[in-house]
Amino acid sequence: MVPLSWYLILSGILFSLGVLGFLLKRNIITIFMSIELMLNAVNLSFVAFANYWHTHPVADKSIVPLSGQVFVFFVMVVAAAEAAVGLAIIIAVFRTRETLNVDRVNLLKL
C-alpha cells in the first residue's frame, strides 16, 4: 500500500520541474516539451485519485469513481491537438526566422 500523498508529491515535483523548464529553457521545442511534462504530472494525480475513489467509495453521487481515468483521456487528446498545432507553428516560425530561440522571435509576426 502506497500513501496517496506519495503519488501527489511525485506529481507536484514533476509539475514544478515542468514549470522550471518552461521558464529556463530558450529552445522553443524544449519549452513545448516542458508543457507536456506538466500535463503528464497532472495526469498522474488524476489516475491516483481515480484509484483512491475506487477503493474508498462514498455515498456522494457527484463523484464518479472512474472519471479520473476519463479525464486523462481528454488531457491526452488536448495534448495531441496542441502538439500538432504547436509543432506546425514552430515549423512556420523556423521557416521565416531560421531560429528556434525564443529570444530571437521578438516581433509580433511570423
Binding site: M1, P3, L4, G12, S16, T55
Partner: peptide, 20 residues
C-alpha cells in the same frame, strides 16, 4: 510554487488514506 504545493499536500495528507 513547489514549497506551497508540497506544504498543502503534506498538511492535507493526514486526511487522505493510501491507494492499493
Amino acid at each position: 510554487l513547489a514549497g506551497t504545493v508540497g506544504w498543502m499536500l503534506v498538511s492535507g495528507s493526514g486526511r487522505l488514506g493510501g491507494v492499493n
